[in-house]
Design a protein around this nucleic acid. Sequence first.
DNA 1: ATGTCC
Length: 488
Amino acid sequence: MSDKNTTSILDILTKVNDNTWEVPGNYKPGMNVPGRIFVSKPLLEILEPETIDQVANVASLPGIQKYSMAMPDAHLGYGFSIGGVAAFDKDEGVISPGGVGFDINCGVRLIRSNLMEDDVRPRLAELLDSLFEAIPSGVGSKSRMRLTDEELDDVFIHGVNWAVKNGYGMKGDLSHCESNGMMPGADPSKVSIKARKRGRPQIGTLGSGNHFLEVQYVDKVYDEEAAKAFGLKEGQITFMIHCGSRGAGHQICTDHLQKLTQASKKYKIPLPDKQLACAPASSEEAQDYFKAMICAANYAWVNRQMIMHWAREVFDEFFKAQHGDLGLDLVYDVAHNVAKLEKHMIDGEEKEVYVHRKGATRAFPAGHPEIPEDYKDIGQPVIIPGSMGTASYVLKGCPAAMELTFGSACHGAGRVMSRSSAKKELRGEEIQNELKSQGIIVRATQPSLIAEEAPEVYKSSSDVVDVVHNLGIATKVARVLPMGVVKG
DNA sequence: ATGTCC
């Protein structure tokens, strides 16, 4: 069966190099540009043909620049594939919620420490219990804090600035977030009452699915200079937070999808797939979505900030008396699901484009003005979480990203088995015990969730990372291994 | 991903 799959995919795609395959511009009628899928041969063999169709569909949207792209972790998504990257001209192009996804600014942050593996291992189980208690998780989980309506507006507009101003973090946290944890241009009046109602009680909650808080140790350093700049060394304890904008972002996406479905008809945009609903970038409908999307993006950064704040408190409670200042600095926070107006060189000219990254990470190289001062000679940290129980990677953005992918890299391992089949075929308790035998502790609200997120339902994060590393889009800095995971 | 169907 896999032979047949490979044969049919190879009939469609043209090899550009070992890690780049092209979807010809005549593969489907209406394509404005060809597609580019960045995969190695082993990843190509497990690529779904439907993902290629999605790349081709996106190529037919107005004003798309250069290529409709898919990262090595690409798989089927709503309209656009997960792992999709597409840039649309600011004036001639479109904005599409499908190119961002339902979990607006789902993303990941990495926190370093002065602790070493041996300091934490003896108290790991207790530590995880405390983290599980301190950070609300699971579907519909409610926060430890209640935002007023005014505070919710502040979160939407000011992002992490709101959190730091109110004592939930340190000033240095700001510059170590993509966009300083605050995209400008938010307009809370474009967010429905329903989305506000869902968002108010959920700030600082982990959610469910593949979202997690993980205690890790640095197992390998590939790039000494970059690791030093990021404050990382072998044997050191780190922790990672992966979550998004919860019910608020989901509702904002749902609300505006409905409006943009109407707008697609109004502006007579031919859609090969209804899920690609969009509107001309400069139209009121597209801009309303964009202003609401920014509210959700800023909300997601605050969500991760609150979780980090409470996790820092737990670490301090456990280790400060013995170890003093734990140096729990934010290494960086990246968005995986967002659209941004950026300047890129296209055919020798600088152009403003709306870059849609859906399950893709920004990966700007050294010297880019959006990189914090202390990383400016290194490049932007690119944080790639592995699946539960497997390695995560820290990379640095490199110049090839600007040439090849509008400054983008992959975002994670990428699913190979659906949630429903995982639940049918695997048992959560068994996975939990298997991980325990490897020294990895898992705390989750439900065993079925552990089955849905089992290591074997994901591609290998190292295969995926090797593609962007070998292309020179983002190169490996360090690998971290899990010790304990808190899940929804 | 998601008050996993208002």
